[in-house]
Design a protein around this nucleic acid. Structure first.
Length: 421
RNA sequence: GUGGGUGUAGCUCAACUGGUUAGAGCACUGGGUUGUGGCCCCAGAGGCUGCCGGUUCAAGUCCGGUCACUCACCCCA
């Protein structure tokens, strides 16, 4: 009989690994709340239409990567491929713009995209997401990147680079797209087939083609950053100035393009060279038109998402995780003593100690071996002899010393000794 | 969706050109010590060789299919 397996690209996070996730999540919450963000939790499924309108009909995410399905009523739904559209939807639906105090949100949870899995890319993956509404000032652009950097530094990620760019507003971009297409067409069919396709559908993406010849052909292409209007230019310059004042290291990457339609003006990505081909561990940008496009008021917005799998992959390369060890292991010998030991374990746990034991009645040697493996500092040994004398042995595994305690009141004594460690 | 690589014990891997009962290390269990961990020694348990089919006297090995993992393209976190 063939055993049932998990869905391709959707992974179990086993107890050995889960410590990384807890560490990343709690560090993220701490930083985000420190910067004034509050958690929001939205459903993992939404109406398909939300993502089509929000992310863009012609994006790859919507066209071929979404888990879309009709439910039993025949409504078209989709598992969320990203968090922003859902948060904007909730923002509009609950009229959160009416409260000027709280306009910063964060979310942590699974996203779904039907792509071919590879290193750092999975069909169910997890993001830490932050969004801010109603702030036009370039201050917030700089602050949100500074916050991202603060978080990464805080958990000990090194060797990453913050790339920034400006896509301009829809007006500048429209004009630029035409200029770029003219440039690309002038080269005839010298570009690779992918780029020829992109030239017509999404010309900006030609810039992140990995084919060397295409990159060479792009020498002398008009840069988007040089084509934006005065207002967008001023905004971008101000963002850079604030970043510099904040001491946040960054580079301007005029070729950085992002795949979601809603971005405008500031965009940014955190890149590493240690993850193979999936090198972006976080990215985001400004999306001032989206709230309006989804039926809300015309409100500015900016946000980013961090890929937790990629982040943890990086962390694991640089750090090792200390295994969690119980403080005390209790070994019981013989049925009567084992029953008493079982009760003692519960008593110690009730006093807040982390305690483990062997439930199977193995030999003392075996129990000692197990105690050693778990990394417990102390072992309590309770056999028939000790029971008869009303005693219990306490062994310090590290010091290799052992002493006799009275069985009654042993809990308090052990608590005191463990506290001193 | 396209291409490359890999599937043998819980893990990491062996098994010459097809040839007897598929091995080792680590991990696990018991023992060496009437009741004491790490090191050492002994013993034991653990496999439909991913799955289905084909070729052959004979398949872990060759062929086809399928599933999974993996890397890359594509795309993005």
């Amino acid at each position: 009989m063939e055993a049932v397996q998990a869905i391709r690209g959707m992974n179990d996070i086993l107890p050995d690994q889960v410590g990384w996730w807890q560490k990343v999540e709690s560090a993220a919450r701490e930083v985000l709340e420190n910067f004034g963000y509050r958690e929001i939790r939205t459903p993992v499924a939404e109406k398909l239409e939300l993502f089509a309108r929000g992310i863009g009909e012609s994006t790859d995410i919507v066209e071929k990567e979404m888990y879309a399905f009709a439910d039993r009523n025949g409504d078209w739904l989709a598992l969320r491929p990203e968090a922003t559209a859902s948060i904007v939807r909730a923002y509009i639906q609950h009229k959160l713009h009416a409260d000027p105090i709280q306009q910063k949100f964060y979310a942590i949870g699974p996203m779904f995209r039907h792509e071919r899995p590879q290193k750092g890319r999975y069909r169910q993956f997890h993001q830490i997401d932050a969004e801010v509404f109603g702030i036009d000032s370039p201050m917030i652009d700089a602050e949100i990147m500074h916050m991202l950097r603060t978080f990464l530094d805080g958990i000990g990620i090194s060797g990453v680079m913050l790339n920034i760019n400006s896509l301009g507003c829809p007006n500048c971009r429209k004009a630029y797209k035409e200029r770029l297409q003219d440039f690309l067409r002038a080269a005839g069919d010298a570009f690779c087939p992918d780029c020829l396709r992109r030239r017509e559908t999404n010309p900006l993406r030609v810039f992140d083609c990995k084919v060397e010849r295409c990159q060479a052909l792009l020498e002398g292409a008009p840069a988007l950053i040089d084509s934006i209007d005065d207002e967008c230019r001023a905004h971008f310059d101000a963002v850079r100035e604030y970043l510099t004042k904040l001491g946040t290291p960054h580079v301007i990457n005029p070729r950085m393009v992002r795949g979601l339609d809603y971005y405008m003006r500031t965009t940014f990505e955190v890149i590493t060279d240690r993850l193979g081909s999936q090198n972006a561990i976080g990215g985001g940008g400004r999306y001032d038109g989206l709230v309006r496009d989804l039926g809300g008021p015309d409100i500015a917005a900016i946000g980013f998402a961090i890929g937790m799998e990629r982040l943890i992959l990086l962390l694991q390369q640089e750090q090792s995780e200390a295994a969690r060890a119980p403080q005390v292991f209790v070994a019981g010998l013989g049925d009567k003593a084992r029953d008493r030991a079982f009760l003692l374990v519960q008593e110690l746990r009730g006093r807040g100690m982390e305690v483990d034991l062997d439930y199977e009645g193995r030999s003392l040697k075996s129990q000692m071996r197990r105690a050693d493996k778990t990394g417990a500092r102390f072992v309590l040994i309770l056999g028939e002899d000790e029971m008869n004398r009303g005693e219990i042995q306490l062994r310090d595994m590290q010091e290799k010393t052992q002493k006799v305690l009275p069985l009654d009141g042993a809990t308090g004594i052990i608590l005191d000794i463990a506290k001193k460690q």
